[in-house]
Design a protein around this nucleic acid. Structure first.
Lengths: 341, 341
DNA sequence: ACGCGCTTTGCAATCGATTACATGGAAGCT
DNA sequence: AGCTTCCATGTAATCGATTGCAAAGCGCGT
C-alpha cells in the first residue's frame, strides 16, 4: 500500500497532535492524557507506524545493541549461553550482536575498534584471552561502554564476570572418583593460559592433595577442550605402562573424544577406565556410556551475564560485581569402581 | 582523556576543512584530492575519531544489520551455519542479529514486528515454518527488506533459498545400506510439516521403491531431529517383532539417541542393526561407533545464504534465486552387512 | 582577456525521533 | 477577582553523518 515509510509526523498528522505528543504517548504514557493517548494509539494502528530505531537511538545517544564476543561461534558449547543472553536482552529492547574473536581477519585491533561504543552499549565477552592491549584501552567509567565476562574471564582486571565455580567442579569430580575407590587419577586439561584450564587444574590438584593421592606429570594430559584433543590424550594414555584407573577431562568434548578413541582400541568405559567430563553438554546424557559429568547452568550463565551488563548500562551503579554459579555432579555410567578392587 | 565523544566536526576543525570533505575522504576517497585526504586522515588519527554508525545509518536510510531467525539458538546443529553467516557479513560492514523464533515471548506477531525494516536491512531465516501470516505481510519488492531462507525454506513462496539436496542425501543413505546387503530398511523422520522431514522422507521412499524394497509403516518412526526422539524411536524399534536390519535417521542427533538407547538394552551397532545419520555434526566422527552419515556443508550454507542476501540488498537484481549444495556420504563404522547374511 | 570544462570544496538541508523549554488553560486557594 | 500551581501540549533544537547543489579554483584554447 504505502511505498513510503510512515514516520512519526504522519501519525501526528493523523491524530491531530504534535510529534512530541506522539513520542510521549509511546514512551512515557503517563505524561499524556487518557483521551489523546488513545487517539494517538488509534492513529498508530491505522497508519501502521513503527518507530525508527535508528533515529531514536541517535537522538538518545545509544545503540540499542549489546555485543557478544565469542571465541568460536561454531562451538556448540556456547550455543546455550548465547541463547540465555538473547533471552534476557530481547525482552529489554536490546539486540544482540555476535562477533567471533577467532575468525580470520578478527585481529585484536579490529576487535578494539568494535568496542568504541558506536556499535554497542555494552559487551559480554566469552573470551578470557582478550589482548591486554584492548583492556588497557578500555577504561570503564571513562565513558567507555561496560564489559562483563561470562564463563571465562581475564585475570588481573577489575572487570566484573559471571562464571561457575570451576575449582569446586573439579573437586566434585575427583571426590566422586575417590569415593568409587580410585587412587590413581589422571586429568586432561584445557588449552594453556585459559582461566578455565588453570582453575580446573588447580581444583584437581588440590583435591588430589587433600586425599593424599599422587599427582603425576605423566597422568596430566594437555588438551584444548576439543574432541580431537581428547582422542589424542587417549593415545597417550594407551602408551603408558602405568595407567591411571580414572581420568577427569576438563570438558565433555574431550571426554567423548577420549572414550571414542579407547573404543577403537577395543577398550571400554567404565570397565577399563572411568571417565568424568565437565559441562554436561546435550550429548553427554546420550553418549555411550552416558557420561558422568559436572553440570554447568549454561543458559543461566548467559542470562545472569546479560542482566549484570544491562544493570551496568542502565544505572551507573553496578549492583553486583562478580557472580559465581554453583555446579553439580551428574553421575551416569562412565564411572565405576576400579577393576582391581 | 576526552570524555566527550569526538565527532566529524572535530575532525573537520582539526583538518581545517568542512565536515563534507571529511565524510568524503572516508567513504569516497576518489572525490578528494590526495593532499587533503592525507590531512584528513592525519586529523582522524590525532583526534581518535570513529564514525558514529547510528548517525550514518540514519542518514543513509539503512540499519547496517542483517537479522537471522533461528528456530533454536541452543541447537548445536546451527552453530556452524551461524559462523558461516557471521563470516561472510562481518567483512562487508554488516552486523549480525540473532533472534530465536521458538523463544517464549517470540510469538509470530513479534517476529513480524522485527521484520519491518527499521531493525535490519535483510533477513536470513533458518526456520522454514514462518507463519504464512508473516509471509503475506512480507512483500519483497514492495519496499520490504529482502529475506532468504537457509537450510529450511517455506514451500509455496517465491522467496529464494539456499539449501542442500535432501532427496539426494536420503538416496545416498539408502543406497549405501542396500549395497551392504540390507533389504529391510527403516527411517526415523523429522518433525511434521518440516520441509527437511518431507524431502528426506521422499528421498527415502523413492530410493526404497527404486530398489524394490518394502516400505512399511511400522518401520517409519516419528521423530523431531532431537536426541530424545531418536531414543524414543529405538524403543519402538525394540518392541517390533519384525525389525528392519538398518535404520536411516534424518539427523545425527536422532542417530545418536537411537544408538544410545539400544546400547542401554545391550544391543550394539552395527552388529545388531546398521544406522545412518544425517548432517555430519562434529560428534559424529567421535561417536561409538563413529557414525556413517550424510555430510552437509554447514559453514558454506551460511556463507552462501549471506552472500545471496547481501547481493539482494546491495543491488536490486538478485543474481541467483536458489542454490542447492550437494551432500556427501561419509562411511564410518555404524553400518555393516546385515547379521543374517 | 574571455569562456568552457573539470576538479575540489563548502553550504546547508536532511534522515526521524526525543526532549528542554515555553505556553495555554484549568483548578485551587485566599 | 487575582494569584499560584500543575497538567497537557506544542515549538523547535538536537543527535552526527551524508549528499545535492553551488561556487571556487585551475588549466587551456582561441
Amino acid at each position: 500500500m504505502d511505498r513510503k515509510t510512515v514516520t512519526i509526523q504522519d501519525v501526528a498528522l493523523a491524530a491531530g497532535v504534535s510529534t512530541a505528543t506522539v513520542s510521549r504517548a509511546i514512551s512515557s504514557p503517563e505524561k499524556v492524557s487518557e483521551a489523546t493517548r488513545s487517539t494517538v494509539m488509534e492513529a498508530i494502528r491505522t497508519t501502521g507506524y513503527q518507530v525508527n530505531v535508528t533515529a531514536s537511538n541517535l537522538r538518545r545517544q545509544r545503540t540499542g545493541a549489546i555485543m557478544v564476543l565469542v571465541p568460536d561461534l561454531g562451538n556448540p558449547f556456547f550455543s546455550r549461553i548465547l541463547a540465555g543472553i538473547e533471552n534476557a536482552t530481547a525482552t529489554r529492547g536490546y539486540s544482540v550482536l555476535f562477533v567471533d574473536t577467532k575468525q580470520p581477519g578478527m585481529e585484536p585491533e579490529r576487535i578494539v575498534m568494535h568496542l568504541n561504543g558506536t556499535r554497542a552499549d555494552g559487551f559480554i565477552s566469552l573470551d578470557g584471552a582478550l589482548a591486554g592491549d584492548f583492556l588497557s584501552r578500555h577504561r570503564p567509567g571513562g565513558g567507555q561502554p561496560p564489559l562483563v565476562f561470562a564463563c571465562e574471564w581475564a585475570e588481573g582486571t577489575d572487570l566484573p564476570h559471571v562464571a561457575i565455580n570451576n575449582q569446586s567442579g573439579a573437586s566434585l569430580a575427583v571426590q566422586h572418583l575417590v569415593e568409587l575407590g580410585h587412587r590413581r587419577i589422571g586429568h586432561v586439561t584445557g588449552p594453556d593460559g585459559n582461566v578455565l584450564t588453570t582453575t580446573r587444574l588447580e581444583g584437581t590438584r588440590e583435591s588430589l592433595k587433600a586425599h593424599a593421592l599422587p599427582i603425576r606429570d605423566d597422568w596430566f594430559f594437555h588438551g584444548d577442550f576439543s574432541l580431537q584433543s581428547g582422542a589424542e590424550a587417549a593415545e597417550k594414555w594407551l602408551k603408558l605402562k602405568d595407567r591411571p584407573s580414572a581420568v577427569f577431562c576438563a570438558s565433555d568434548q574431550m571426554a567423548c573424544g577420549f572414550i571414542s578413541k579407547l573404543s577403537l582400541h577395543g577398550l571400554s568405559v567404565p570397565q577399563d577406565v572411568s571417565v568424568v567430563g565437565f559441562d554436561d553438554i546435550d550429548i553427554a546424557r546420550h553418549y555411550i556410556p552416558p557420561l558422568t559429568t559436572i553440570h554447568q547452568p549454561r543458559h543461566k550463565l548467559g542470562t545472569k551475564a546479560a542482566e549484570l551488563l544491562l544493570s551496568q548500562i542502565e544505572s551507573a551503579s553496578p549492583a553486583v560485581r562478580d557472580e559465581i554459579l554453583e555446579v553439580e555432579l551428574i553421575v551416569r555410567k562412565s564411572t565405576a569402581a576400579p577393576a582391581g578392587n
